[in-house]
Each structure stands twice: as C-alpha cells, then as structure tokens.
Design a binder for these strands. Sequence first.
RNA 1: GGGGACGUAGCGUAGCUGGUUUAACGCAUCAGAUUGUCGAUCUGAGGAUCGCGGGUUCAAAUCCCGUCGUCCCCG
Length: 376
Amino acid sequence: MYTLIKKDDKTRARLGSFSTPHGMIDTPNFMPVGTIGAVKTLSADEVRKAGTQIMLSNAYHLLLRPGPDTIKSAGGLHKWINWPGPILTDSGGFQIFSLSRLRRIKDDGVEFRSHIDGASFFLTPESAVGFQLLLGSDIMMALDECLPYPCTRDYAIRSMDLTAGWAARGKNSFIKEISAGNIFPTPDSSLFGIIQGGTYLDLRRQSAGQITGIGFDGYALGGLSVGEPRELMYEILDNTVPLMPDDKIRYLMGVGTVEDIFESVQAGIDIFDCVVPTRNARNGLAFTCFGKVRIRNARYKNDYSPIDPSCGCDCCRYYTRSYIHHLFNINEIFGLKLLSLHNVTFYATLMKNIRESISNGNFCEFKKEFLGIYAG
RNA sequence: GGGGACGUAGCGUAGCUGGUUUAACGCAUCAGAUUGUCGAUCUGAGGAUCGCGGGUUCAAAUCCCGUCGUCCCCG
C-alpha cells in the first residue's frame, strides 16, 4: 500500500512510503540485489546496517536452486536468509530471456532450460505468482517478457500483448491464491504489473494502459537500461510515468547509475533495483560523493584516506584506500566485501538524502549540487 | 678436463629447415567498460636494439665463429 506524502514543486519527484508485511519503506528507495538469497558478500545484518530498507531476490534463481521445497521447509525466504525486512521478488522473466539457453514462448507461459544444468522448466504467469507466494515475498512481480534492444516494432507489439495477457492471468491467480489462504497468505503482500513496449513511445503508453487497466498494487517499468541510449530511456520515462497512477508506487526495474536515479526520481519513479553498487564493488569500483573510485588504480597504493571521507560505513571508518587497493591487487575476498558494504551504504544514503531534499523542497538544488561534485 | 642443452618484455614461453609488413602469446603492469548479478567477461595501452661481439647474405631472433652466463651428464 502506497502513501504519497509530498510532491515536488518543480519536478515529478515525490516523497512517499509503502507498507509491506515486513514493514514500511520510505520512497524514493533503492533495493540492493540479492538474487540468490544474499546480497553478495554481505550478511543480512550488514545490509540492514548499511541503511537498506528493502532488498530484491529472484524467483528464477531460487526456483532452480535450491528449489521450492527447500525454502518452503525452511519457513520462507525471510527466515531462511535471516532478513526481517521487506523483500521484492522478481518473477524471473528477465533471467529466462537473458540466461536461459533454450526457451520457447507460448501463450501459456515460457518453457526454458536451466542455465545451470539444462533441466527443463515451464513457467506460467500462475506458477510465477505461486512460487513467489511460497517464498513469502512481500512484493511479487508478474511474469513478463523483457525485450532486448534493439527490437523490431512488430515483435515489441506481440511481446507487449503477451506481457499484458500474462499480467492479467497473474493478477487472477494472485487473487485466487490469497483468498484461498494458500501457502504464505500475507494480506498486505503485493503484486506489481510490468509495463513493456520496448523503446516505442506509443507502445509504452499502450502497455501502461493495458497494465494499469488490470489493476495492480504497484507498477513497474521493465525493459529499460538494456543498451538503449540514456536520452531514450529518459524520454520514455517522461512519457510513460505520467500514465502510471499517482496513488500507486512506481518501480523502475534494473536501474541504475547515480545519474539515472536522479533523472528517474525527477521523472516520478519511487523505487529501483540494480546490481551496479554490488557488482561494481566486486569489480573494484567504489561510489563516493566525489565520483567513482577505481580502487585498483595505482594512485591509491599509498592513499591512506578512506574510500569516502563523508561516509560512515565500517569500510570508511576503519580501512584505507591503500589497504583496499592491496586487497584487490592480491585478489583477496575481503576487498570485495568492504567495497560492497560501502557501495550499498552509499546507495542507501543517497536515497535518504534524495528523500530529505524532496521533503525540504530542494530536490533540484540537491541534484544539481550532488551531480556537480559527483561528475565533476 | 670431456660432452650436451639453453639464453627472446618483470615472469613463463612461441618463432629458430633465413624473407607476411612494426618479433607473437599467456601471466603481471597501466587504463577503460560493467544497469531486473558477474569472485565473470570484454576493450585498449605501455614494455624486448631476440645474452654480447664478429662473420656469411640482398636479407639474421633464425646459419657460422668467438665469448659470457645458466643448467645437465661423464670423469
């Protein structure tokens, strides 16, 4: 359930909150990605201490390994991974289209082979919902097809209609399961629909109409930041977000960079998920108020300052760039952890500051000031 | 003392029956990419007067002689 607290005067940015069975989150917010039940290298407690309010997991990966029974027997995903807060689960649509070696799309659903061992699965809009319910997800995503970029208009149309059909079936299934009290019936859990349409503005509008017409607890934009130019993504946001209901939370899937988040918040997006902070951390890239720090660079060999002097995370409180540079140079796992901790903290802090700026009525000024230093 | 093998970038190697241009490759170094996961991967850069000296030849890392060095075998 979304509550709109305040709209920015000059932009479409908005301040709000969203309630889930495992607590409230403030929006705009960012979800670190814990695909397989862990934000890589970090304990759930560390993720929480970094300032994270909600994390993302992935049904596709968990379905393949360890499989539904294990998590069900464990008492649900939250208990299993020791994360007491809200969890949003992606249906796995994206993975089926990005990882699976063999997939066959039918009206029914999608047949695919595991990217791990080649085992065959058939995922339907109904089973996607069922599995996410079984996980005990706070926010479930409807099964969708994520288009690549570029993509022909004809295919984008067919895919958009397919996604809409799946969305409707997912919604029905969700209602049925909840009312039947199946598995982990959580009265306040949510199902989000996903707007597709490729990079065609009119299709995006049409898809927004289709998905909002079905009626969901929140709406997501999918299939963006898949290789299209940034300006195109911003244009799509500007044209599509206004068609997403004001009284529902808006989720931009898979985004993104610091710049993208500012632009998207400005366009009216409320929540994000992205691998950037964690993946880049493991590749030696740290985010700071002053821009990116590529910790492998030789210039940090004898730099005894913290990654980000303005950051309060344990990485910045106790360790130097020099030390972390060394850890990366010798391929020590602890380095991955330290930068992951920092980057997750950086993103959580960034979102908190964005919320404060909206609350204070100076989002535009904050954005300009922040990016001026960050990109400068 | 006798015989043999080998010296090519920081390290490990290829090329060595003379002639693809500017001596190749891996690791390392330096830099960049990374958007519903990637301890992955990709891209680019720098770095060798081919142990040294002489000879043969139109042409030598490549053939010959000498020399220095390393390693092995025999005494």
